[in-house]
């Protein structure tokens, strides 16, 4: 065991793992977190807590992670390189370990241009690959980036994101391999709306033996409407939405599109489960936490296996 988190144990026991995601509030209301998180409890192994996602200021991921722990929910601390230099990142990583956070997800971070503080100065002192390496060095060597030894070595189950749909496609599996070399234990993919491309990507990863070296979780986000699908298709760089998704949503009454989206998400989970090398799913029900139970149940993934 690297960190002995629940998520890690589930993988180690050979279970098909499920993670969820929630975005902290744009304010100091802890009640909001309890409200959202209660829908995820018992549905997933652990919950990603986003870190100023889309470069919009929100309650600190680490604080929300601790609140989740208090609720008996295991968190995955997302950490981006946009807002912190190596001093702050390492300080936060040490603090997270002290608070009992065991899963860390290392990300570059969306550029602040599209966020709510586009005038901000960004940092990017280190990148996501180096952030993975930082976590690994802290954990495996007990040392900071500068080789200084830590008093009290933190334990993390190290995660990161991969996007099979961004360009150049031929480099994407190499980038996955680099994340493994840097020290990643598990990976979550960008939302999948191009199943063929995902299959090709996973096949390449499998053929290169990469799926043996880390746990890869397929990213699933249920579509709420044709509008949401079109928005993602047109305006989210690096996201591909094939027309069949849109056509299927169009085929039902507008009021039923959400239900259809949930159904599609369930089918997707069933599909990815059969793909070699997929070790779990990461369900990102954006502002739709209350429907996670339906998705996980529909996919036949409830109840979650008990594990000590």
């Amino acid at each position: 065991m690297k960190a002995g988190s629940h998520l890690e144990k589930m993988f180690a026991a050979g279970h098909f793992a499920v993670t969820g995601e929630m975005g902290p509030p744009r304010g100091a209301d802890a009640g909001h977190i309890h409200e959202k998180a209660k829908y995820l409890k018992g549905m997933v192994e652990s919950v990603n807590v986003t870190d100023n996602q889309t470069a919009v200021v929100r309650m600190a991921s680490m604080a929300v992670c601790r609140l989740l722990l208090d609720m008996g929910i295991e968190p995955n601390l997302q950490m981006v390189c946009r807002d912190r230099n190596r001093l702050a990142i390492q300080a936060d990583l040490l603090g997270a370990a002290a608070l009992g956070i065991k899963n860390v997800l290392c990300l570059s971070g969306d550029h602040q241009k599209f966020g709510d503080h586009p005038q901000a100065k960004n940092v990017f002192d280190i990148d996501s690959m180096q952030l993975i390496a930082t976590c690994k060095k802290l954990r495996d060597e007990g040392k900071l980036i500068n080789d200084h030894e830590c008093e009290g070595v933190p334990q993390y189950f190290i995660g990161a994101a991969v996007n099979p749909f961004a360009d150049p496609f031929d480099f994407r599996v190499t980038r996955l391999a680099k994340k493994i070399e840097a020290g990643v234990d598990f990976l979550q993919t960008q939302c999948i709306y191009n199943m063929e491309k995902f299959r090709t990507y996973m096949q390449q990863a499998y053929d290169q033996g990469l799926t043996e070296k880390c746990y890869i979780m397929a990213g699933i986000t249920p579509l709420k409407s044709v509008g949401m699908a079109r928005y993602m298709q047109k305006f989210v760089p690096g996201l591909e939405v094939t027309e069949d998704f849109i056509e299927r949503l169009k085929g039902v009454d507008k009021k039923k599109q959400g239900d259809e989206g949930i159904k599609m998400a369930i089918e997707q989970i069933q599909e990815v489960k059969e793909i070699k090398g997929v070790a779990g799913v990461h369900v990102m029900a954006i502002e739709w936490e209350e429907r996670v139970e339906e998705i996980v149940t529909g996919a036949g993934l409830l109840p979650r296996p008990e594990i000590s």
Partner: peptide, 21 residues
């Protein structure tokens, strides 16, 4: 690179263009 990344393109690279523009 808008993020000064040193290990390859981020997930926002699409069609040879940067996610910021």
């Amino acid at each position: 690179c808008a993020k000064s990344l040193l290990n390859g393109p981020c997930g926002g690279s699409a069609g040879g263009k940067c996610e910021i523009s």
